[in-house]
């Protein structure tokens, strides 16, 4: 008998098999408005042991959030395990996310996780890290960025490229400002359209153009040798950035991204998130571009 099955046999017989579908009670601490329709929710598990176990999550993983009576949805984990607080950043787009947006501090909901493979940050030690984030694509990448900053000595150059449609749609502005100021870290921002829509009506003086235009900015050299490129953003942005990176000489296995699909179980059983041979929730959501090309189905 297959060893995995045998082990499961024992666990089942002994009654110690874990129920992976069981969410645990969580409390909302506070809510912060990010950009239009996007909020950050700071929370913690009611049970301290659950919280401690969860805190061992890896950058790039996700969790399943339950709003009982409405449903459950997957969301990335933008905090780094090196930070103190646990939070999600969620855009309101359907009934479950709308229910979450309707909660206030003190309200209870439920969470289970962390799930997914996460970024192999240990494997990347010693390498340069280039992060390219389009719009809310910065949410899943934030975890890896903050983690790398916290373990700065373990990595080479760190470059962050972030673009949004307009200035008011740039994500995590306080973090961006901090990263811009951090010595040894490059942070380049751009918007598709400059406009006065920032709070305070400040005029945008930075780069205007798609995020790929930052690669050609004078003074910017993107390392390719011994470098991992993290890419996350809307499908069109993704396609163009990949083209740019390949054009620069990046190998497909050194470009990494995190994929999104409709999910229900998060543990590789319900079938909804399967693309070709991969279940995004267990084989991903982090995939190299080489893996993406070989999934057997278009993403």
């Amino acid at each position: 008998m297959n060893p995995a099955l045998a082990e499961r046999e024992t666990a089942g017989a002994a009654g110690v098999m874990e129920n992976v579908y069981l969410p645990k009670a969580a409390v909302l601490d506070r809510v912060v408005d990010e950009i239009h329709e996007v909020k950050t929710f700071y929370w913690h598990f009611e049970d301290a042991a659950e919280q401690a176990a969860f805190r061992r999550f890896r950058p790039g993983q996700f969790a399943q959030v339950s709003l009982f009576g409405v449903g459950e949805f997957p969301t990335s984990l933008p905090p780094s395990p090196t930070e103190e607080e646990t939070f999600f950043t969620v855009r309101q787009v359907g009934s479950c996310t709308a229910a979450l947006h309707g909660l206030k501090a003190g309200d209870k909901f439920a969470v289970r996780g962390p799930y997914g493979n996460g970024f192999p940050m240990e494997e990347y030690r010693g390498k340069n890290l280039v992060f390219v984030a389009g719009g809310i694509g910065l949410i899943p990448l934030r975890s890896a960025i903050v983690y790398a900053m916290a373990k700065r000595g373990e990595y080479g150059r760190i470059q962050i490229f972030h673009g949004a449609k307009t200035p008011s749609e740039l994500m995590y502005v306080p973090n961006l400002r901090e990263w811009e100021r951090t010595p040894g870290v490059e942070c380049h921002l751009t918007v598709d359209r400059a406009s006065r829509d920032r709070a305070g009506g400040e005029e945008w003086t930075g780069n205007v153009g798609v995020v790929g235009s930052l690669f050609k900015k004078p003074g910017v050299t993107v390392p390719v040798e011994n470098t991992i490129a993290f890419v996350c953003g809307p499908p069109i942005m993704f396609r163009f950035v990949i083209k740019d990176l390949l054009g620069m000489g990046f190998e497909e296995r050194n470009i990494v991204s995190t994929l999104e699909r409709y999910m229900k179980c998060g543990v590789g059983k319900c079938g909804h998130c399967c693309i070709g041979v991969a279940y995004v929730c267990v084989d991903g959501p982090v995939f190299t571009y080489e893996q993406i090309k070989n999934l057997g189905e278009d993403i």
Binding site: A4, L5, R8, M17, V282
Partner: peptide, 16 residues
């Protein structure tokens, strides 16, 4: 059995 018990996670409802 192979799918619900023999992959990454085990499904406890199936197991029972």
């Amino acid at each position: 059995d192979r799918f619900y018990l023999g992959r990454e996670f085990a499904d406890i409802y199936y197991e029972k």
